[in-house]
Structure formats: structure tokens, C-alpha cells
Design a protein around this nucleic acid. Structure first.
Lengths: 173, 173
DNA sequence: AATATATGAATGAACG
DNA sequence: CGTTCATTCATATATT
């Protein structure tokens, strides 16, 4: 019995916001992910085939390092506003951070900026700011989490209440 | 593969026709889709490059339309629950602001949050954001008003200007 | 229903 | 570094 069960999960849930999705939305997500996965697989296979036949095709050789090579995605802006990282740039930055790069050195910033510029307009200042903001916001998040954990240390009841509220949401159809 | 996974399903809790997801789960989904999108983009680009150079590669041709068709770049329509202040909460907040509280201290935010929670669900972040938005929008309004005062342009011109700003952006290649 | 606006939230950049 | 500002994104609500 799921409803009101509160047997939600391991320590996954935080006291942060929760989100509600409909079946249709979940389905849509699955479809998108499946579609991307299929396309990636096909493309990758095509490249393997092609590479096997024609090893000297320019630009194709070191596919293993997919993230570091190719294309400039979209830089449509004429009016220079604030930097908006492309999904690729973000992905790379997030990965670097998650792998322990929290306060990159000047040289590191130079390098990664140069790598990221293959995926869109970017400056060293952008990268510097990104890491700075990341650190600050991660830290604040950790503090909030820790604090609210401490608050509810002996009060899981409150949490239960919160869960209960959501249960009331029900089906319009 | 490394990217796919069924973790989503495990964590999703069934509740009538809606599901509740944690921030972490949503984040994970977004990451997955962003990752696939970025990889597809790269592979497609590489493929185009390669195809341009070597059009008659066996095994490549009959699949060459693969990347042309599907992937919807749209990110999931996840309905995020955002705080909607009750009229009572709004009244109190407006009053505080009008009485000179523009940038409340952390402690002040704590206090007011706790007071406001008597009138409905609310978090410190909600309060913080409210004041932040209030400041920004008040400032903007003041600036607009002042500017239109100085200008002899018609009143409607002002709004037209605002619209015009966006028009410049565009044109990828 | 489709578009426009109001406003909560996220985030790049700047400040002290 | 911590905090705040400025801009943008996303969603709820209003308007047509």
C-alpha cells in the first residue's frame, strides 16, 4: 500500500521541495531518454564502422575523448549579455567539480576555458565565477541540509507531516 | 551504459495518478537528458563532418538519416511546486517592506518565516527570494518611472522600448 | 485555447 | 569568501 505509507525510501529525501509529475510526464521523460539513448548508440556504431574502414578520416580519430573535441553549439547572441553556459559546457564543468576540482588554479582555468570554448563562447572569468558560485552555493546547501537535519533530529514527526500533505493531492481525471 | 539507469523508477512513489520526486531525482533526470543531448549533438556534428569528406562510406549511408529525425530538445515538463503566498502572508510581507525592511538579516528572516508559517507553508528561502524580488522590481519600476518622466515620449513608447530589446537577438548560422 | 503578465526561483556577475 | 545585485527562466494567473 503506497498511499500514506511513508515507507518512502532510504535517506534519499531531503526536506527540500518535492515535485509532482503525472504519469504522462514520466512517460514523456522515458521516451526522451530512450530516444536519445537509441540515437547515441546508432551514431556511435556508425562511427565505429566508419573508423574501422577509413581510419584516417579527419576529425574522427579520437572519439574516446568525446567531450573534448568538437562543435560550437550555439552562439546566436549579438548583444552581449551574461554568459549562458551551453549544456555541454555545464556538463563538463559539473563533472570537473564532482571529480574534486573545487578551486581550480589559474592554469587549470586557462586550460578548461580553452577546452570549453570549443563548445561555445566563454571566458576565463566565466569559469572562475562559475566555480566560485558553485562553491558558495554548495556550501550553503550543505549548511541548510545539516541544519534542518539537526532540527529534525528528534523530530521525524514533522517530516512525516510534510509527506502526508502531499498525499492529499489526487487525480483530477 | 553509464548514463542510463532505473534509479528513477525506484525512487518514484505512486500516488494516485501523480508521482512525487525529490530534487535529487529531478536533477538526475535533467542530467541524463542533458548528457544525451550533448553527446548526440557532438556525434551528429562529427558525422556530418565525416560524411562531407567521405560520402560513400559503406554502412554509413543507409543510416545517415538517423540523426536527422527525432530528438526533441525539450526538457521535461515537470511541474514544480512553487510557493504561493497566502493573502495573509503577503499582507505581512508588504507591510514589513513598506516599513523599511528591504534587506532583512538572516535572523530577521528566521523570525518572520516562523511568524508567517502560522499562516501557511513557507520557508526561509521563500522569504529571502520575496525580498530579493521585491527590491529588484521596485528598483526597476522606479527607474522606468523616472525615465518616462524625463522623456517627452508618449507613455506607450516606454513599453514599446522594453519590447524592442529582445528583437536583436538571433540568427544562428 | 492562446497570449500576456505577474511573480517565485535560479544563476552569472559584482561587491566589500 | 560570503552576500547581494541584475538578469533570466519557469510557472501561475489574468485577459482576449
Amino acid at each position: 500500500g503506497a498511499i500514506g505509507g511513508g515507507e518512502v525510501e532510504r535517506g534519499v529525501e531531503r526536506k527540500g521541495a518535492t515535485y509532482v509529475m503525472t504519469e504522462g510526464q514520466i512517460e514523456e521523460l522515458r521516451r526522451q531518454i530512450a530516444a536519445y539513448a537509441a540515437i547515441c548508440e546508432q551514431l556511435a556504431e556508425m562511427h565505429r564502422d566508419a573508423a574501422a574502414q577509413q581510419e584516417s578520416l579527419a576529425g574522427m580519430r579520437n572519439m574516446s575523448n568525446v567531450y573534448l573535441l568538437p562543435p560550437p553549439p550555439q552562439v546566436p547572441r549579438i548583444t552581449k549579455q551574461r554568459w549562458i553556459p551551453t549544456s555541454m559546457q555545464l556538463q563538463i564543468l559539473e563533472r570537473e567539480y564532482s571529480q574534486g576540482i573545487e578551486t581550480p588554479s589559474k592554469q587549470y582555468i586557462k586550460d578548461i576555458t580553452s577546452a570549453l570554448s570549443l563548445h561555445g563562447q566563454i571566458t576565463e572569468a566565466n569559469v572562475y565565477n562559475w566555480f566560485q558560485n558553485k562553491r558558495a552555493r554548495m556550501k550553503r546547501k550543505r549548511q541548510n541540509d545539516t541544519k534542518s537535519e539537526a532540527e529534525t533530529e528528534s523530530r521525524d514527526q514533522k517530516k512525516a507531516n510534510k509527506e502526508t500533505v502531499r498525499v492529499q493531492i489526487d487525480d483530477p481525471d
